[in-house]
Write a protein that binds this DNA or RNA. Structure first.
Lengths: 227, 227
DNA sequence: GCGACTTTGTGCGCGCGTTCACAAGCGCGT
DNA sequence: ACGCGCTTGTGAACGCGCGCACAAAGTCGC
């Protein structure tokens, strides 16, 4: 099979995005299993653990995709799989995270213990509001935006988290990019424009609720007019 | 569909999930446009507004999918489109939301103004910790879990939000389902088992960071070993 | 009033992801 | 030692969603 018409300039190392999105779920389930003292797991069991997002076949294909070995007739070694997935996700290194915007959500994120236990360290908190500067949240002081390039430089890169109102998000995003941040998690309810080479993932609570609302709406309509 | 004139394109129950997931983004952008006083918008412009998640063709196909009319040579009427999408998402009704777990994240959610302005009303807050009961957060008192069926009954259904630690999530989920909740937004870092007819959407901050970590990792690797 | 430009609506082909089904491999009991 | 059952790994088909490209349609300029 030769490559079709398109120029093969960008060769992918072969991990589909859909698989990448599931690896963290597997990792989560595997950590839970390890805590329970389980040392081996089958694709069937792992799929059940991750819930609706996993089928046994998907699990096997995903895992085979990253070259990790299972043992036929037995299953996968939990510890080895954790190591393999962690390596693939780049979690050997503990990534520094900078949070911009110390409002309601920023406070919650700064105080969230889940980051530290999953391979991330909150490096600093920033806010544009001078009244907030110096305030200590989750053990870290709130710093001015001007410090951002310094912190990112010190850490040798970082993941940026935007927890500001929508109006400020694009400006903050630009500052993050200018400071050298190439991966951004955006909680502000707005789309962001970024140059090539910068990844943005967005989490919008209202959007999630609206998607649920759609299905709820449909379910209600179906009750009134049954098939 | 060769009939010209006022032939109504009946929207069939077949709206792709991918489209449903984008409708809230369009709605968000349209509200912003309306606030700016814009009354008409082209698929091109709307696509640009939603950022990387939208191409003009996708916008057109999505909108045509829900039967809303644009005017050829002009574009779409912003107000009409807002009404159409809102109706399709079931936002004519203001959905009640119950939040379970008033920790860091629960506090932030209770205080988040974005819900009220996007078609949702926080109906009540719950927590299993007796020490928290009665505490007022975001204008609402924290109530015991035992009140959950009462509240859901009063509201005639509700969307449940789980903001508890992972260990409690499945139990809370079961209680929500037992109380009649059929749509759940889960912030706890764990998979949930639910019966048929119940929708769960999950938001895991650490998972999002790990996906970013993967790409960051890959970008770093590409610098060392360029193509 | 008419032509030309703009923008929607959509049919088609393609590529990705999911699922099915089965062969290969490994351990275990006998 | 040998077959039996369990589980992985994977090839192939299916289906969905995306982008392209063009026809229909409506507006604006002259």
């Amino acid at each position: 099979m030769t490559h079709p018409g398109t120029a093969p300039a960008r060769r992918r190392p072969g991990i589909p995005d859909a698989t990448v999105a599931r690896l963290p779920l597997y990792l989560r389930a595997l950590h839970a299993l390890a805590d329970e003292g389980v040392t081996r797991v089958s694709s069937d069991e792992l799929a059940a653990r991750v819930g609706s997002a996993g089928s046994p076949a998907k699990v096997r294909k995903d895992l085979s995709c990253l070259g990790s070995y299972g043992t036929r007739g037995v299953g996968y070694d939990v510890e080895q799989l954790v190591a393999s997935i962690s390596a693939e996700l780049g979690l050997a290194r503990r990534w520094p995270v900078v949070i911009v915007g110390v409002g309601n959500l920023g406070h919650a994120l700064a105080g969230y213990g889940g980051f530290a236990s999953r391979g991330f360290a909150i490096a600093a908190l920033f806010d544009a509001d001078p009244a907030r500067l110096g305030e200590v949240v989750g053990g870290l002081p709130v710093r001015p935006m001007a410090d951002l390039p310094v912190v990112v430089g010190e850490q040798g890169g970082a993941i940026g988290v935007i927890a500001t109102p929508a109006e400020a998000a694009q400006d903050v995003c630009d500052e993050l990019v200018a400071a050298g941040v190439r991966s951004i998690l955006n909680f502000a309810p707005t789309g962001l424009q970024v140059p090539d080479g910068v990844d943005v993932r967005k989490v919008d609570l209202a959007v999630e609720l609206q998607i649920l609302s759609f299905h709820e709406h449909r379910k209600a309509a179906r009750q009134v007019v049954p098939a």
